[in-house]
Write a protein that binds this DNA or RNA. Sequence first.
DNA 1: GTTGAATCTGAGTAAATGCTCGGTTTATAA
DNA 2: TTATAAACCGAGCATTTACTCAGATTCAAC
Lengths: 205, 205
Amino acid sequence: MTLPQPRRLPVQARARATFEAILEASARVLVERGYDAASTNRVAEVAGVSIGTLYQYFPNKEALFVALIERHFDEQVELLQRMVGSLIDAPLAEAVRAYVGALFEAHANDKAFHDAILQQVTHLGLPAITRVHMVSRQIVQVYLEAHRERLRITDTALAAFVLVSAVEGIVHTLMFAPERPELDALSDEVSLMVLRYLVGGDDAG
Amino acid sequence: MTLPQPRRLPVQARARATFEAILEASARVLVERGYDAASTNRVAEVAGVSIGTLYQYFPNKEALFVALIERHFDEQVELLQRMVGSLIDAPLAEAVRAYVGALFEAHANDKAFHDAILQQVTHLGLPAITRVHMVSRQIVQVYLEAHRERLRITDTALAAFVLVSAVEGIVHTLMFAPERPELDALSDEVSLMVLRYLVGGDDAG
DNA sequence: GTTGAATCTGAGTAAATGCTCGGTTTATAA
DNA sequence: TTATAAACCGAGCATTTACTCAGATTCAAC
């Protein structure tokens, strides 16, 4: 898949504001309508610009939402990297709790948006989600390698895959579950599972 | 949300075949096109019936796919119940391995279909996925309760939530990951994590 | 102030889609 | 055989949508 490029980049301040307004509006419309029902006319209307203006910056509908999603994931990856950087020397239990807690918070913050995006990533076949996953796995793996002698896992790459996808799966499920457990208790329990998997017994917590 | 009912039920054998053909075609078209691009005209064409015939059995597009998804999840729940029924007295390690293995297989069997459905469930806001999750959690919880004294978890409902969503998350991630670990190794590792969480040390495996 | 580039406008077009409805064909039963 | 119901057909309508383009407006530079 070739990623469609913005048709033209804004140079004046007015144009930059327009560009931002369009991206912001596309996020709002995506959340409230879903991808296919999110018409470009509606996005332009919400952004307060004409449909013609929208098509000056984005060659087609797909390019618009691709730009939105790519940007979102770039931010996510950056966040993750900053967090793990500050945790690399922290005790395992603390690091795990911080990681799990951060993921819970990130998704809770803008549940609808994360939701809508996650849904569309599959649909558009974007490499973005894959990128986030791979980066997450690499970051976690680096951490595991650094603490290897204290852990009872053998394959750090495999463990990283299991951990990242398990925790994200839990967070994801949480979004749709009508009878959700209490958040703090769940966060603790997930941390517990991770710690038991990594180091074992009650010395984990 | 009111679940739209089939407009009319087929009574003759010919009509039953038509009904089935339409549902089958809707699955195929959903997979190849996604929900919004899956036009009813296309479904009718693939099913080899006229568009008018389709609308004799389903009042609208949504009802068609709701019927498809509801049926799929009913089958899934049934499968799960049969499996756990035969595992309730099995040793923990064996039961866990069987459960994890079954989920891996079920999704691997028709990855594209599971995918497409999972995506649409959110979009349509169906109670079906919720039903599957809740039933899964209940089934797992019953199992955990039955083996409670051998486990080191306190809240079986919470543990069931964590386990079900974690394992499903891993399976789900597996679908999109381009660099996927070897399946058997992954399945073993997931089982390992579950066992360590539930019972602890190396006596787990 | 003037000029040319950057930016914005929005009515309109072509195509696609959900769904209807009047009418034909096929099955059942007396 | 014939009458009634069940099942099927598909041209076409109403609506929506992505996207264009010819022209209007705003900015920057001199």
